[in-house]
Design a protein around this nucleic acid. Structure first.
Lengths: 364, 364
DNA sequence: TTGAAAGCGCTAACAT
DNA sequence: ATGTTAGCGCTTTCAA
């Protein structure tokens, strides 16, 4: 029992060759029914479980895909735990609070991951998941890379040199961030139309005119969202009066921006945020400043994370088809395996505006 | 580029033997510094990524662990999608609604999974995740089994014969459900103390006396929780007036039980529920019947899922250390690999009562 | 329809 | 300190 039965054991037991055992499992029709029964029975009795390592080696394919995501709970600054003590007692207070704050809902990443999982299982692929803090990032990543036929990654979850290296060996698909690496396959959403539509809604349905785009690190997604915003403004003949305030880098947090605006008493009519998480932060900051949403100012997000449905006021947003994006990543990977030489694909999925309370609507 | 560089290529390029290449990666100290540089450089230039299949085969260990969980979104009854149509357009309305209902928060499974992930990455183990609907369950499961050194499973996520078979070959650890299979390692929590404590709280702090235990499928966890409940009652000298009403099987849903009670106008002082999810259902049913919590009746849960913090009234519950449970599963697995002959372990982790609004307390 | 045999890429004795 | 070599368990021609 130490080492587990192999094809050899099964073959011996069934009185056939190892090739026949292999055939029985991979191409059951190629063996006579009676032989098949024999082999299957032997395998059953022995508790035979094929070794994926051996199979992978022999076939040159592992039959597994990988997913690598950053862990938004692990702050790069302070690593995975508060102290290096007992690995099982995470610096409780601190970590707990973080969990309370951030882990409330399935976020963007989780929902995409779910899509990846479901599609992998459906297509008979094993799925390896990786992640973690920047310290062991690369180790985990290249370990995974050696185990899979293709890799799905979230942007920035891994240094781009490491990614490039891996992409030389196996197909890699990146979600969003379409500009980042033009050699890779990508799946994105229609950021421009989404933000354009939600902005138009604010203007047309609520008669708002002084809108401010806010949030996020610069990224190609956010650039596109901003473009959609500006497009809607100009279509409506409105000036972008808040021009200097959009995508703020890390040196100026969203919270601080909002606080400053509140203190100056110079609220816009609406904050059009680059992501739902930004919008949540904005709403928190507004609440802290005693500003009422949507009465005093409207707020919109982008993503459609679950939290937006639950908070009060509920968040008007642009929903990305996250599960489908995950599934599409798997599609692309599997497709790429069969067609290594196709030009890089950039699938762009549609989005949907979801009107809730934070813009001033009163959803049913 | 088609097949990717191997040790042989690296060795040739660096002008050393393949063994030296191997050593360079596995035991860097065993090779002269200069040689090491040489090899590393060659590997870098070639874009070498070690094949985990080959390594696994040679070493007799894959270096990966598996996690298998049921997917609570996939109803066994109707499978993964409403129609068998386009795999990318899940029967939208239906699936969406489910997501709205169930996918609001990270549930028990998610939080445990998170612990497993973090611990795996920390310990340098790759992680394979499996799940899915009952149809491809077994296929996915045995596929995973062939790829890993050990497997963590949620109870009932897989037929027990299949599990037994796998357990013959690799260590398997089950979370909770300690009675189910006594050969396997288990990690559980102190269900009895938890429910006892929360029940005592209802009695002592709120002066309630007619309590009703409710919910869940029968399971060893729920049995223990019920035992804690009954223990607290008898300690307090209270009769279990609601005896016939506890763990209701599938033939009588929790919702129906609550509705019936409301219609009869025979509310107890409190519903002590077997899980948070049961408690949420109970609270929904009560709300639908116009019953106010906690004024008319108190409700408590068990688990400590995030949703309980967010709903109103917030849910008084017993929190399981879910992340830690996941980490512990990994511990057990890794430990078992080194000590195959140790007797089966059953780690029981402590729980914590969390007082919130649904019992009548006024937290924070 | 089945068997024989040559690898797949790497590790780990064992030699040198 | 490094090289030689024999597998690890399976797939897959090619023969029989």
């Amino acid at each position: 029992m130490a080492k587990g039965p192999t094809v050899y054991h099964v073959a011996e037991r069934a009185g056939v060759s190892i090739a026949t055992v292999s055939f029985t499992f991979r191409q059951p029709d190629k063996v006579k029914a009676s032989t098949r029964e024999l082999v299957l029975a032997a395998a059953e009795e022995l508790g035979y479980v094929p070794s994926a390592s051996a199979r992978g080696l022999a076939r040159g394919r592992t039959g597994a895909l990988g997913l690598f995501a950053y862990d938004y709970l692990l702050d790069p600054a302070d690593g995975i735990r508060g102290d290096g003590q007992d690995p099982h007692e995470p610096a409780a207070a601190d970590l707990e609070r973080r969990n309370e704050d951030l882990r409330l809902f399935p976020l963007y990443v989780d929902e995409v991951q779910r899509g990846v999982e479901l599609e992998c299982w459906r297509r008979g692929q094993a799925l390896l998941v990786g992640g973690g803090n920047p310290e062991n990032n690369e180790a985990v990543l290249s370990d995974i890379a050696g185990r899979v036929d293709g890799l799905a990654v979230f942007p920035r979850s891994v240094p781009s040199e490491a990614l490039a290296r891996i992409a030389r060996r196996i197909p890699v698909v990146e979600i969003s961030e379409s500009v980042h690496n033009r050699e890779l396959d990508h799946v994105t959403v229609d950021n421009v139309s989404g933000v354009r539509a939600i902005t138009e809604h604010l203007i047309a349905a609520h008669g708002l005119s002084e809108l401010m785009f806010l949030g996020g690190m610069p990224s190609s997604d956010n650039d596109e969202r901003l473009a959609g915003f500006l497009g809607a403004l100009s279509d409506a003949g409105l000036p972008n009066t808040r021009e200097p305030k959009y995508p703020c880098g890390s040196e100026q947090s969203v919270t601080e921006v909002v606080r400053a605006i509140c203190e100056q008493g110079s609220l816009p009519d609406a904050f059009v945020c680059a992501t739902d998480q930004d919008a949540l932060v904005v709403m928190d900051a507004l609440a802290a400043a005693g500003v009422n949403v949507p009465r005093d100012v409207a707020v919109t997000g982008f993503d459609g994370i679950a939290a937006g449905r639950v908070i009060r006021p509920s968040l008007t947003t642009v929903r990305q088809p996250m599960e489908q994006m995950g599934r599409t990543m798997v599609d692309l990977l599997l497709d790429r395996l069969d067609h290594p030489d196709k030009p890089p694909a950039a699938i762009r999925l549609p989005v949907r505006v979801i009107l809730r309370e934070s813009c001033g609507c009163q959803p049913g």
